[in-house]
Computed example of a mutant assay.
Amino acid sequence: MNFNFTEEQAMIKDSVARFIADDYDFDQRTKNVAMEHGFNPSSWQTFAELGWLSIPFPSAFGGFGGSAVDIMVIMEEFGKGLVAEPYVATVLLFGGLLARSGDGEIQQELIASIIDGSLQGGFAYHERQSRFELSDVKTTAVADGEQYRLTGEKTVVFNGAAANKLIVSARTAGDQCDENGISLFLIDTETDGVSVTAYPMMDGQQAANISLNNVGNAQLIGELHQGFGLMQAVVNDTMLALCAEAQGIMQKLTEATVAYSKTREQFGTAIGKFQVLQHRMVDMFVAGEQVRSLLYRAVCSADASNENATKDLLALKVMVGRAGKLIGGEAIQLHGGMGITDELDVGHYAKRLMMINTTFGDADYNQQKFLKLSASLGLRCMS
């Protein structure tokens, strides 16, 4: 199988890598996350000018029409640079829902605004009681003429404070955990009844809790009662992208640890010459390569839309969680006490890996989903 990138993919990869090397070192990243919404608006406009915001969208919306491989290329480089700008929240989640929901006038207008960098968005799906279950929705929507009114609370909304518009999951039929009866609605964050409480996450990026008190002018996105399938499809796309980001982080941590071991001396010699530490760094490398192999398999399955795509994705998410814990922990330990200081980037990379693990379900949760899916397909499951 040919795993070489196309000329366009190589250009995208080089473009992101050059930006990070020239304009996005760790000191600049630290300044960016200290800004009002946890990212630099100037960097975001650079993303737009370089065309990165258009990559996932079909040409019908003015986009590049990129594949899962194209997104993987971008996200892997973002991982290496620990990029904090809300590409996942605005482009992949908010934009992905718009793109998959239809080809209406509102989709055309909003996606064009995402591509030119003028619109920030977010996806409000998580609730206090829902843990990792997308279908656990208590927020309600009631008809108000041709539009709807929303009441409820959403938590951990990525980019929630900076977002101009949100897509909100709300229940329009069924019981609290039913997959049927969930609908998606577009709202403006300046609408009366919307209350935003922002806070930084452990990885430096920002999220917000969104309180909705009889919020009017909510516009239905997609089909009534059929929002769960749309949500799941976009979450799967985004989960794959996050795994690519994690792979970039793991590669960066492994390389940084090996480089440090060649310069840090103990007992008169570089610690990288101690065999026991060499074994630990080999374990880091092997874990990262296992993630890379599963990532390529999952990306190929996604682009081919084959029957194993979901199973491959779940297996990848499990491996990312476990390998991330190993690589992040080893990188911190082999750097010694300085590995956990804010002044060194190693701890920040490890924190981002932990956040990726918990987004859309941690390793244990996705392993259980993998086992259930395998059983439903008539495969023998092994614990």
Rank of each mutant, 00 (worst) to 15 (best):
N306L: 06
T257A: 11
Y148A: 03
E49P: 03
R264A: 14
S376E: 14
V83D: 00
K311Y: 13
L295D: 13
M284I: 05
L150D: 02
V318Q: 11
P41E: 09
G248A: 08
G337F: 02
V276S: 12
E265H: 14
K31Q: 06
G62D: 06
S305N: 15
G324Q: 09
Q367T: 08
V73M: 11
E105I: 08
R18Y: 10
Y125I: 13
L326S: 05
A363R: 13
S101Q: 03
W52C: 08
A331S: 11
F285Y: 10
A304L: 11
V194N: 00
M11K: 15
A89G: 03
D25T: 07
I271D: 08
F123I: 02
K165G: 00
A84H: 04
S15L: 12
G174D: 01
T46H: 02
N236E: 14
L277G: 00
P58G: 02
Q333L: 09
E179M: 09
V83Q: 04
G222S: 14
D70A: 11
M319D: 04
R322D: 12
M1Q: 08
A68N: 12
R280G: 06
G95I: 07
D188L: 01
L230I: 04
Q251P: 00
D362V: 07
Y125A: 01
A48H: 10
G95N: 10
Q147L: 02
G152K: 14
A48L: 07
A208P: 01
D178K: 03
V346R: 00
T151H: 06
R380M: 11
T155L: 13
Q247R: 12
S195A: 14
D345N: 08
R29I: 05
Y148G: 07
V215I: 09
R131N: 12
G65E: 09
V258S: 10
L97E: 10
M231C: 04
I221Q: 01
A60R: 15
L50F: 05
